[in-house]
Design a protein around this nucleic acid. Structure first.
Lengths: 110, 110
DNA sequence: TGAAATACCTTGACAGGTTAGGTATCTCGT
DNA sequence: ACGAGATACCTAACCTGTCAAGGTATTTCA
């Protein structure tokens, strides 16, 4: 990955929630989506991902259920909750503000 | 402040170096500049600021000297080094890439 | 049958930010 | 003269999210 995790830190929850806003999904797939959407430039480490799931579930922003596994390894699916949608919206606003502020702070001309 | 520290984490060095690219300055003033440039929406904690100075100086990105204090409390000025300019440039590119990637990752439409 | 992909999870260490203190000087109003 | 508030610096201990490194189990395909 070309972008260090610390640069994204504080935004991983937003990333995950944004993915679940589209549809229910499971860890492995979400990680692939993130890799694809960033053209391979960013990838969440598995430990980070699962820690985030735990954090988000404890916060009530996502709920999990085991996929009705007919074939393939078992999958734990996650669904975003109403509170999670609310939080996602909020986090996106914060990202917008972070961008504005950072761009201001990095200006070097008069 | 309206923006949590974790959202900026990993970018404080870039912010400080960008300020010193303009001119030498000292801790208290840099903090004021950051507050002003962000319209009061972001403020580095003092402890964060001074640990960053220490980190940047140890990395050889900035150099410090005591201001010729005629009046007022003593001030420790910081100047950016050539290596610091290089690092600043690099960090700005990383910020640009972070923005691009994050914007991709937060898209929820098709 | 064995490698590679899929899929999940945990533990311990680490780095950077925060909390909560501390010191000292200068200015200004009363 | 005195106290409040601004200026200006610094540190130790803690908190939190990420990461490295390990683990388990199943399916696919050569």
């Amino acid at each position: 990955m070309s972008i260090a995790g610390d640069l994204i830190r504080g935004h991983t929850d937003a990333i995950i929630l944004a993915r679940l806003l589209r549809s229910d999904s499971y860890g492995y797939e979400i990680n692939k989506m993130i890799s694809n959407l960033s053209s391979g430039r960013f990838e969440l480490k598995e430990a980070t991902l699962y820690t985030a799931f735990k954090r988000l579930e404890e916060a009530g922003f996502i709920a999990s259920y085991w996929g009705s596994s007919g074939a393939g390894a078992r999958r734990r699916y996650y669904a975003i909750t109403p509170a999670g949608k609310e939080a996602c919206h909020q986090l996106m606003l914060e990202w917008k503000e972070t961008k504005e502020i950072m761009d201001q702070l990095l200006i070097t001309e008069e």
